[in-house]
């Protein structure tokens, strides 16, 4: 393949990491906006509403997986709690991913970083660094 930028075209294009990171930026931003801000509001309102409401919040968003019941009607509740725990971790991943691709935006916005290799390198590195940051964040929280 010729080592030059291929013109953007409606039908002729090839997948690349820069496209993935662009889509990830939108998906993580929209995910945080639609779900994350809801969780943020619930968290703050539960705090302002007292201990019982706060414990209810943490009980849903960060359930003790060992204490979940897996019989009868409790199965549905337990499934939701497992899902919500994944959502909580997912939101932290979305944040770090959007942060890295957002910082990449800043660099591209000032007109830097368009050289083919540089551009490719950072579109691969951004989401990878984000995963490392997510892992580091949870390690610090869970191992303290």
């Amino acid at each position: 393949m010729a080592n030059r930028p291929l013109s953007p075209h409606l039908q002729i294009w090839k997948w690349g990491p820069h496209m993935a990171v662009s889509i990830l930026h939108r998906a993580t931003g929209d995910g945080m906006a639609l779900i994350g801000l809801g969780v943020l509001v619930w968290w703050l309102v539960s705090m302002a509403s007292g201990q019982a409401a706060y414990d209810n919040f943490t009980g849903w968003m960060w359930a003790d997986l060992g204490a979940l019941e897996w019989s009868g009607a409790a199965i549905a509740t337990s499934l939701i709690k497992v899902l919500l725990k994944i959502v909580t971790i997912g939101l932290s991943w979305a944040f770090f991913t959007h942060l890295m691709s957002g910082l990449r935006h800043f660099v591209l916005d000032i007109g830097a970083g368009y050289e083919l290799n540089t551009n490719k390198m950072w579109s691969i590195l951004s989401p990878v660094i984000a995963i490392l940051l997510t892992a580091g964040f949870w390690a610090l929280i869970l191992l303290r």
Binding site: M47, G102, F106, D109, F137, I141, R144
Partner: peptide, 29 residues
């Protein structure tokens, strides 16, 4: 972009707070 810069600073503060607080219990938070 202006709000994005604000987000970097303020979300950075929130993430750092989560890590630095001794725990995330009701009383602490």
């Amino acid at each position: 972009r202006f709000t994005a810069v604000g987000n970097v600073v303020l979300m950075g503060w929130l993430v750092a707070s989560f890590v630095l607080l001794p725990d995330l219990s009701y009383a602490t938070v």
